[in-house]
Structure formats: C-alpha cells, structure tokens
Amino acid sequence: MAVHVGTSGWQYRDWSGVLYPPGRPQRLWLEEYARNFSTVELNNAFYRLPAADTFAQWRTRTPPGFVMAVKASRFLTHVKRLREPAEPVRRLMEHAAPLGDRLGPVLLQLPPTLRADPAALDACLACFPRTVRVAVEPRHESWWTADVRSVLVDRGAALCWADRRSRPVTPLWRTADWGYVRFHEGRAHPSPRYGRTALRSWADRIVDTWPAEAEVFAYFNNDPGGAAVANARSFRRLTAAPDGG
C-alpha cells in the first residue's frame, strides 16, 4: 500500500529551524520541503486561488513523483455552498492544470454550518473530470447518511477521514478505492502534537481498510511549532511498506 504523507501547507515561519535550515530564504522552502516529503496539501488555494503560472512554477520546483493535493476555493464550498459549481470547478481545474503529473486529489472541505444536501454534492462532483480524484470533508453531522455515502461511492469520491483531538470526527467509510486522511489537532505534549498511540491507531485503520494496491493520502494540519512536521515523519515510518516502498 502506498501511503503518501505530508503536511497541510509548507510556508510557516515557525518551521524555520525545524524543517528549514535557519537562514534559508522562504523562496526556497518548497524545494527543501520536497526533499523531506513526497506530497503536500495546498491549503492556501482555499483563501485565494493561485494563478496558473504559479502552479506551473511549483511543478518545475518539485521533483518527479511529488504530489500536490489542492484544497478547493471557499468560493465554491463556503460562498456558493456547492450551488452553481460548474464555473468555480472549471476555474480551479484550469488554474491547477499546469501542475501536470504533480496534481493530486482535490479536497472539498465543507463549512460546519452546511447541512447535508446529497443532490448538490452529486452535481458538484459531476463537474470534475473523471481523471481527478476528489475527497470530501463534511463537518455537519447531518451528512452521515446512506444517501450521502451512495453519492460518494457512485462518483468515486473519498470521504475524508478527519481527526481532531486524536479522535475520528467523521465516519470511517471507505467510499473509493483510494483514501484521504486529515489530522487537525492531537492531544500529546507539546500541543498540538499527536502521540505514538494515536498515530499507530490511525495507521492500523488505514491498513485494515484499504487493500495492498490502494493509495492513501494523509496530511497533518497541526502546524504550530512544527508539530505537523514531526507527526508526518513519524506517521510515514508507521505506514511504510516492509520493504521501505
């Protein structure tokens, strides 16, 4: 099983001296990040969609095999609330297209106040090219229904497994032949790190859920103090194949 482990973003000033050598210019942080991890979740696209030229530059600055997951714009998920999705989805895919083979899954993180709307979700997922993997992270409990699960399965979209305070905050549904996991906040010291027991539990869940040929993407969003860096490194070791692959 290929478990791709990284962090949600890479441009955090307090990572200087943790992931980035002291004095390393911020303009070179992506290259340094890519020497340490094989994937990253681009979460700043949620706030402002980068230009196509920026995506093209990121492709040239990362090595072959590097994967960049893209968090969809809040215009689609929080302003439009999945309504009228065709134009924002088209714009997102046009901007991200220059990533080429570096483009990984697209994440739709829904607002916590958005109640379940299986029809709107289905219409939104239908706008994405079939070749693009889409993960969905609902945050209102009304989404945990058979109808919603059916939409995800039918569209081949992954329910994003989310953790907060070292506990799952989503059902552990397998809705696609690939997976997506996000770690928001652990309970270990120093906060907001995850402890080894919590990480081992998540590694076991992944292994128990997906077959050996599956791909799973896991990102740590607990960035303060470099917690995400330390946890991502630990989780990569826990989920590595026995042969190191």
Rank of each mutant, 00 (worst) to 15 (best):
N36C: 12
N36Q: 14
N36Y: 02
N36A: 11
F37D: 06
F37V: 04
F37K: 09
S38G: 13
S38R: 15
S38W: 02
T39G: 09
T39Y: 05
V40C: 11
V40I: 13
E41T: 11
E41P: 02
E41Y: 05
N43E: 11
N43T: 08
N43P: 00
N43L: 06
N43K: 08
N44P: 00
N44D: 15
N44F: 05
N44I: 03
N44A: 04
N44T: 13
A45D: 03
A45F: 01
F46W: 08
F46E: 08
F46Q: 06
Y47E: 03
Y47S: 09
Y47A: 10
Y47V: 08
R48E: 15
R48M: 12
R48F: 12
R48Q: 14
R48L: 15
L49V: 09
L49Q: 10
L49R: 11
L49P: 05
L49M: 13
L49E: 05
P50T: 10
P50I: 10
P50M: 15
P50H: 14
A51T: 07
A51F: 09
A52N: 14
A52V: 02
D53S: 14
D53F: 07
D53Q: 12
D53L: 10
D53K: 15
T54F: 06
T54V: 14
T54M: 11
T54A: 14
F55T: 14
F55E: 09
F55D: 07
F55R: 06
F55G: 11
F55K: 12
A56C: 07
A56R: 15
A56P: 01
A56Q: 15
Q57C: 04
W58H: 06
R59D: 08
R59T: 11
R59A: 15
R59M: 05
T60A: 15
R61V: 02
T62R: 03
T62G: 03
P63F: 13
P63L: 08
P63W: 06
P63T: 05
P64T: 03
G65R: 06
G65A: 02
G65V: 00
G65K: 03
G65L: 02
G65Q: 01
F66Y: 06
F66D: 06
F66V: 04
F66N: 06
V67S: 14
V67Q: 09
V67F: 00
M68I: 14
M68T: 14
M68A: 11
M68S: 12
M68Q: 05
M68D: 01
A69R: 07
A69S: 13
V70P: 00
K71R: 07
K71E: 09
K71M: 07
K71Q: 12
A72W: 02
A72Y: 03
A72Q: 03
S73L: 04
S73V: 00
S73N: 11
R74N: 04
R74P: 04
R74F: 06
F75Y: 14
F75G: 04
F75M: 01
F75I: 05
F75V: 13
L76N: 07
T77G: 10
T77V: 05
H78E: 02
H78V: 03
H78I: 13
H78F: 13
V79I: 12
V79P: 02
V79E: 06
V79Q: 09
V79R: 15
V79D: 08
V79G: 01
K80C: 02
